[in-house]
Nucleic acid binder design. Structure first.
Lengths: 174, 174
DNA sequence: ACCTGAACACCGTTCAAGT
DNA sequence: ACCTGAACACCGTTCAAGT
């Protein structure tokens, strides 16, 4: 029996696991989601997950990649809007990751895979803001924007308060 | 035998546990520190800790209170310096909490005690910055400062890069 | 009041065994 | 190649028992 008889089936099963993990991670958070729950939701046993992912952290990375890709795919219409709208959009779009931001930071030291995703994420974020910033301050300014976006994700505020913060930030920083 | 024969001894034992927990939490992080390690460092068994604290989260709160009190006690000489110096000082002083910032955010949903400490912390931080800010923007501006401080704690940068970010922030926001 | 040994329920992960 | 049942080492927490 050949090794790769149904490569399609493997990808599909993997997707089912990622989809289940995504829903549970986003809704309940990483720590509160036991691998056995994810496995049950995907119709397998807990240890089967290890045939598709080396560990729970790599499964989180797969989920983060999906979430980020989804957010970016919806970003295009924003390309022409002012920076404040882009940041507002980013905060709303990334709010699905809200429960996971702290987990990513917390597990960075323990998991090279998560550390790597985190670095890549900030590179993408940096690239998106930097082009809109005065070249002289682009470096520190882009960091400030990233910190505020993360802060707004971690400390959910009302819509108007959020706008106030972003408007002030963009007004002063650009 | 009276119930409170040696109230002093109880406080001392409690302190030993907090001191051990503080060192381990700061050095290794909350998740990586098993209660049994703390207990061993304090010369007791793991379950004995539960006679002094209702759970691991409350022990973390006790540690956070110590760290914050220490930082504030060193803050006085800063009172007359410019805002940028104060923020720089805050980041350096709170860097002992670096490993715990994400834990506090992550466990806020699960632990009312941690949530409460977190709220109090931001009230203190807000009060310290707000007086230095133009009253019109004080609310959003103080949030931006808090977000940048947290961002610098979570994403350690070089000393000069850090200064660049803080200087730009203070220059623009005040 | 204070502390312990033993147990409980749960976790991520490993492994030998099946197909 | 893919999946499982059973086990492992570990965790926070509880509890009956000692002093």
């Amino acid at each position: 029996m050949p090794a790769n008889r149904r490569p399609r089936a493997r990808a599909e099963k993997r997707d089912e696991i990622v989809t289940a993990a995504r829903r549970l991670f986003v809704d309940d958070g990483y720590d509160a989601t036991a691998l056995s729950k994810i496995a049950a939701a995907a119709g397998v046993t807990a240890n089967t997950v290890y045939w598709y992912f080396p560990d729970k952290d790599h499964l989180l990375v797969a989920v983060l990649e999906e979430l980020l890709a989804d957010a970016l795919s919806r970003y295009e219409p924003m390309a022409q809007r002012p920076l404040a709208d882009k940041i507002m959009f980013a905060v709303q779009e990334l709010s699905a990751m809200r429960n996971l931001v702290d987990t990513v930071h917390a597990r960075r030291a323990a998991s090279p895979a998560i550390d790597q995703w985190h670095t890549g994420f900030h590179e993408v974020a940096d690239a998106l803001t930097r082009s809109e910033l005065p070249p002289d301050d682009a470096e520190p300014a882009s960091h400030i924007i990233a910190f505020v976006v993360e802060g707004l994700l971690t400390h959910p505020a009302g819509e108007t308060e959020q706008r106030e913060i972003i408007d002030l930030l963009v007004d002063r920083i650009t």
